[in-house]
Design a protein around this nucleic acid. Structure first.
Lengths: 382, 382
DNA sequence: TTGTACGCGTTATCAG
DNA sequence: CTGATAACGCGTACAA
């Protein structure tokens, strides 16, 4: 067994409590004693057991990161992960990775009740739709585990359903019931909620500005027929992006026809089949916006497999700016989303909240990060 | 505060110890009592605190995964990680991710002494050379933390130096002092050692067979001048791969000239500059083998930037078979290394060892995984 | 300024 | 079959 505080005390001829106080910076200990204790502590390589500290302090100094076991789109995931890891490391927190597979509810409940972590980062990527997300959030909320969602905004489920119904058929005047849209990227008032009605903290990309930038870029190139490769799995991001495309097109006197929306679920190469469906239309689109880069890359391959040239015959753009977007030929036009920074920001905020006394904690963070259009070859007709 | 075992006992009118025994499957408890306890436990959502169990059992049921904070080659890392995560999940272990940055020695010592994990997976990728690796292994060994290296073989440092000196200038008869080379991929006798002389467990790709397959593939295409983009950072893998290339070329009456070896350290886009150096040679190579796919992809870009056509003017091949290898144009010829399976295998073995009593533990695992040549366009002259 | 005593939540041993 | 008790290692109010 390694050296404990009582070993140290015995070795020094002091009591355990004196040693503890010396180590923890209490003022009621003689300078000389403290010095002796610190020296001996280093000599004997003393390090308090994590479990003992946790039990006593009711604080694990560990941060959880919740993500799907299925890792289909790893390039995006790893960026968030690295950011979170960096923030955790800086704060002296360990990072426990929870890859939830089947029956996420039960495993999450176990984790929370076992009090394995002080707080939880929820990587929404690939978590599987609003239902799954809200289920996880409800568990975290019920078990009093502070948390934040990384990668998408979170709305109350009622308003979600409304938006979904309105967004899907692309009818009506969608401009009125969505006041947050079109605002600059910044902290927003607390509109995000879990299904229990409590506001949920999140960091998300500015989907509206991002999708608008892509659409305008394609409009400027003179495109007429637009397709959208959607990701209904990723509910809130998908809704916001599709909505922004629709609004921008409407503003230019154009439409995103329902037939030109093809779903690419969170699964390997799903973008390939989705793109094929668009290409089989009587009049295929001349410009395709993919929900993200992974899908866009599949779409480029699908087009090339059908001898459809990109960008000459069809423009394809994505979102995220993952490393592969630079690698594919033609290089992919996309929107850069600062995923790593988002992960780091979210974790930093969460850890800062933990350091505050319960009452002093600020309102939940709901921040959108601004994005940047990255124009590459896949959308540039020469 | 959540429900504890004493709450449960009070609620049932039983003693804490009876409840504990009922929950932990002891035989000396009435069937009826057990049933009642189990029911109430579910009703009240009882879950033992992780920290309390750890303190009592001296066992965390957590697995550590050590990896570099700098994530330059994430595609390979994430494959290992996913495999490890899967094995951990299956065994009911949590996975603590340790991204070591500056001063890895101290942070690793802290982790070990705090007894945060029962065992540690060491992802060697990007960890920074044999010195760093052996330092980490020595700490783990000294602190009695069971561990395994994933991604490269580990030799004793003395033999390392010997091999390094011999491997570097590519002189002498290298065939004699390397008996393990050329054997089929399987468990090997304990030759891997830490600097203290103890054998170190590892799972590694069959570098020799992999590099030989690539070299033979290029020889068959009639190539004469070979270049190697090395990764001296990743010592053991690099030595084995370079050595196998040299031997295979010698066998065909050819040489890997020292001038045709260019180093691409673990840093962003380092393969680009390394490739440029090869292209600036008076007689550039006609075939380039890169240490891994990330480097190979950089190399392709470097060639294309100089109007050198791949594969017509120069063949470029990599190793690992990361997703990007399929995406780049021309698609990259490479060798598939089953990284995910390796991570899963390593973690499974380590966790199985933990389940065994100390004395029953088997010899350290030293396993090489067989690889498979994946021929794509980047090496096929039409 | 130092030491004593207790509790954090759990499990194992031993006595009843 | 059940329950009292000790112990895991640490931090802290309180007493000396």
């Amino acid at each position: 067994m390694a050296v404990t505080i009582s070993d140290l005390a015995k070795y020094l001829g002091l009591s355990v409590s004196t040693v503890s106080k010396a180590l923890n910076g209490y003022s009621d200990v003689a300078d000389k004693t403290r010095e002796v204790v610190l020296t001996a502590s280093r000599e004997l390589n003393y390090q308090p057991r994590s479990a003992a500290r946790t039990l006593r302090l009711q604080r694990t100094e560990k941060l959880g990161i919740l993500h799907p076991l299925k890792g289909y789109e790893s390039e995006a995931f790893i960026s968030y992960f690295r950011g979170v890891a960096k923030a955790a490391e800086r704060c002296g927190y360990s990072l426990i990775s929870y890859a939830v597979g089947s029956d996420p509810q039960r495993s999450l409940e176990r984790i929370c009740r076992a009090r394995e972590v002080d707080a939880m980062i929820v990587i929404s990527l690939g978590l599987g739709g609003a239902h799954q997300l809200h289920m996880a959030l409800d568990v975290l909320s019920a078990e009093n585990v502070p948390h934040i969602v990384v990668g998408q905004p979170v709305y109350a489920q009622q308003s979600l359903l409304t938006k979904h119904h309105m967004g899907q058929p692309a009818t009506g005047q969608p401009a009125t019931d969505q006041p947050a849209m079109g605002q600059p990227a910044t902290d927003q008032p607390a509109t995000g909620q879990s299904s229990t009605g409590k506001a949920v903290a999140y960091v998300a990309p500015d989907n509206t500005a991002a999708a608008r930038a892509l659409t305008n870029h394609l409009l400027a190139a003179g495109h007429e027929r637009f397709g959208y490769l959607s990701r209904h799995d990723d509910t809130y991001n998908d809704i916001e992006r599709q909505r922004a495309i629709e609004m921008t097109l409407q503003h230019a006197g154009k439409q995103l026809e329902p037939a030109y929306i093809s779903d690419a679920p969170y699964a390997p190469y799903s973008g390939h089949a989705a793109m094929q469906r668009l290409l089989e239309l009587p009049k295929p689109p001349t410009a395709v916006i993919a929900f993200n880069d992974h899908i866009a890359i599949d779409a480029i391959h699908a087009a090339q497999a059908q001898q459809v040239r990109v960008p000459d015959d069809i423009a394809i753009v994505g979102m995220d700016n993952i490393p592969s977007a630079r690698i594919i030929t033609p290089a992919l036009t996309t929107v850069d989303i600062p995923m790593r920074a988002m992960g780091e920001y979210a974790a930093s905020w969460l850890l800062a909240q933990l350091a505050l006394p319960l009452l002093a904690r600020s309102e939940v963070l709901q921040k959108t990060f601004s994005t940047e259009l990255v124009t590459r070859i896949s959308s540039v007709t020469s």
